[in-house]
Design a protein around this nucleic acid. Structure first.
Lengths: 136, 136
DNA sequence: GTGATTGCAAATCTTTTGCACTAAA
DNA sequence: TTTAGTGCAAAAGATTTGCAATCAC
């Protein structure tokens, strides 16, 4: 083992103003080491247990929201029954597989919204989400 | 009062293969008489009670889903905690006011998606949803 | 040590379900 | 009369919360 195996993740948490606790470090390693991912609280909790990381479901929920507030994650709304979180926080859109409830990034250039309405008076556009729903 | 005040709504329900019961007729009148609307189960139930329509929340849920299956309504996903239903079933997109959880149609021509990825192998695109999230 | 964080269990909120009752055809 | 639809209350599923115990600094 590296003498400082967690330093990158710890730095990232500190940079986001989050105290690097054992649970946050472990979850951050699952989320951010490797390629972009989409998780739900349940799926991340299950994955943590698989890796023998002792963390409660409540803490997973809290952590996902803290990471989202800190802009380490992005919340994606595609299903009224479950929250999805995306480790890819850059501007991009999604396929949603209705048969399997799976979410997949659409590469940035493959969607282009060429016309948008202006924001209603007094409002600011926070985000434009495009979801392409597919099924077999 | 007209001698056949409910005939239009009744025809619409029959046409959709739904038996025109007292509850369905009353809810359909709230939903379809007047301009396009966005409702949640809770909001429609409250509105029904305001109009002295005796209907249970469970029936409102069931009815909204039956209407959706019959293509009298469309379900809109903008919030992971609540289902919204839209009486406008034509192709169009939405503003979502994050401060007030309110949903509003964007006129058809004000959004144009000029490039879309092709569907993954074996999948068919069921719908493309664009949500413009705004806040004050 | 001190304040932030966590775990647990209970609470909350939305939605669905089982079943006896009622109403439409 | 027959079957579909309804109401209620209970169940289910996802998420949040209160509070004592624990941990980072």
């Amino acid at each position: 083992m590296d003498a400082r195996p967690y330093s990158q993740v710890i730095e990232r948490l500190r940079g986001a103003g989050l105290r690097p606790t054992r649970q946050r470090i472990a979850l951050a390693k699952l989320l951010f080491e490797g390629c972009d991912r989409h998780v739900t609280a349940e799926s991340l909790h299950a994955e943590a247990l698989d890796h023998s990381i002792r963390v409660s479901l409540a803490t997973v929920y809290n952590t996902l929201h803290q990471f989202t507030d800190a802009r380490l994650l992005r919340e994606i709304v595609v299903d009224s029954h479950r929250c999805y979180f995306d480790t890819n926080t850059t501007d991009h859109h999604h396929f949603f597989y209705e048969d399997t409830n799976r979410l997949e990034d659409i590469p940035g250039d493959d969607v282009e919204v060429s016309r948008l309405p202006k924001a209603p008076a007094g409002e600011t556009v926070r985000r434009v989400d495009v979801v392409v729903r597919v099924s077999g």
